[in-house]
């Protein structure tokens, strides 16, 4: 894994390499480098399988982090490529031509985070949320509790307890 990271760092100007486990590493790439890097990993290094494409909302930094997790089945190792993109009017180049499965992830990211992937197949079709009109729910400035209270009727009488405290009272009622 280490040799792989070292061989990639300079040609693709990667930053922040993290070797999480001997068989799992993460690197950060510039968005322009992503496509050549993925092609290289897929065709030359044997990372033929796109495991997941997911996003993290860094609200304070005003950025989305996209993580492309790839797997090399022959050698049993995984690599995660991270790309930071600006949060405002977030768009990213689509990779559905490299892995067709990416179209589904991109469709989900479009719906849940509002990230656009121009050209990706069926991108704007509803995925899980049908007829959603609010801001995308996985964005961190979306207030889930407020939305739930406004939209759905809560059944009255619901209590929340601290599990540790509750079990203590149940098991040792005299306080010992």
């Amino acid at each position: 894994m280490r040799e792989l990271l070292e061989s990639l760092t300079t040609p693709y100007s990667l930053t922040d390499p993290v070797e999480q486990r001997p068989d799992l590493a993460f690197v950060t790439a510039g968005r322009g480098q992503l496509r050549p890097l993925l092609m290289h990993l897929r065709d030359k290094e044997g990372f033929t399988h796109l495991v997941i494409l997911t996003a993290v909302d860094w609200l304070e930094e005003g950025e989305f982090q996209l993580t492309y997790l790839l797997s090399d089945r022959t050698h049993g190792r995984d690599i995660g490529v991270r790309v930071m993109i600006p949060r405002d009017e977030a768009t990213m180049e689509s990779i559905h031509d490299i892995w067709p499965t990416a179209a589904t992830y991109q469709r989900e990211l479009r719906e849940m985070f509002g990230i656009d992937f121009p050209g990706s197949t069926r991108l704007n079709e509803d995925f899980i949320l049908e007829g959603w009109a609010d801001i995308p729910p996985y964005r961190r400035d979306f207030d889930t509790l407020k939305y739930a209270d406004e939209t759905y009727k809560q059944r009255p009488g619901r209590e929340t307890r601290d599990p540790a405290q509750h079990m203590k009272e149940q098991l040792y009622p005299d306080g010992k």
Binding site: L129, P137, L145, Y152, K153, Q154, R155, G157, R158
Partner: peptide
Amino acid sequence: TINGGMYWDSYNTIKCLDD
């Protein structure tokens, strides 16, 4: 189904099935 259970604050699940 009774009161939302652990999804009581979810944006996407109903909380009161009998409605």
